[in-house]
Amino acid sequence: MPLRALPDPEKAKPCVLVIDDDEAVAWAIASRLGRDFRVVGLTEPQQAVARACEENPGVILCDIHMPGMQGDEVAFALSQEPRTARIPLVYLTALVAPDEVPDLEGVFGEYPTVSKMASPEDLREIVTMILGIAPDAAN
C-alpha cells in the first residue's frame, strides 16, 4: 500500500498575493512578513484574477501605479469575478512614507493603503487584522 503524501506546510500558511510590476517589492514584503505567511508575487497585473483564483489568497496587496493596468483596474477586475470579489484588497504605494498613509484614508475608495516602506510590524499588523488573525498568533 503506497504512503499518502503529507500535506504541504507552506500551503497551510495564510496566502498573501502581492501584485506589483517590481518583483523586488514582493520579495521585500515576503521578508517583512516572515515565515508565517506564504507570499506569492505577481508582476503581470493582467493575470491578477486568474492567479487569485489559483492561489486563493486571504488578502491581496496591489500596487496603485503599474504600466499596462493600474491598481484600480485590477481591483475592478477582481470585483467582477465571483471567486475573487470577496478577497480583501490593500493598495501598496511608494508615493508616501508610512507615517503619511493615514492622510490617504478614503482617497482610493473603500480600500486601505499601506506604504511599500512600511515596517515589518506595521505590515504584519495590517495583514493579520485583515485576515482576522490574533497579532501574536502570526509570530
Rank of each mutant, 00 (worst) to 15 (best):
G109W: 00
Q47E: 14
Y111W: 01
P57M: 03
G132I: 13
D8W: 04
R86S: 15
Q46P: 00
A5P: 01
A24C: 05
T113E: 02
L78I: 09
L17T: 08
P88T: 07
P88F: 03
A26R: 03
E121Y: 04
E44M: 11
R83K: 15
P67H: 11
P9Q: 10
V18C: 06
S115G: 14
V96I: 11
A85M: 06
D72A: 06
L104H: 10
L78Y: 04
C15P: 02
A138I: 14
I130T: 14
V40E: 15
A85Q: 07
E110P: 05
I130N: 00
R4T: 12
R38S: 14
V18M: 09
P14R: 02
L89T: 01
P102R: 06
R38E: 08
M129E: 15
E54G: 03
D122C: 09
D63T: 02
S115E: 06
A50G: 06
L3G: 11
D63H: 03
C15N: 10
P98A: 11
L104G: 06
L78E: 05
M129L: 13
A94F: 02
P14I: 07
I29C: 08
I60D: 00
I130G: 03
N56L: 13
A26P: 12
R124D: 07
M1D: 09
P45M: 01
I29P: 11
G34H: 08
R83T: 07
L42D: 05
V114C: 09
P135G: 08
T84H: 04
A24L: 13
Q46H: 14
M1K: 07
I29D: 08
F76R: 05
D22Y: 07
V25E: 08
T84A: 10
E105M: 07
A28T: 06
Q80N: 05
A77K: 00
R32K: 13
Q70W: 04
Q80I: 01
I126K: 01
L3Q: 14
P67L: 12
M129G: 08
C53S: 03
P135W: 04
K13C: 06
D20H: 08
C15H: 13
P98W: 07
M69T: 04
Q80W: 00
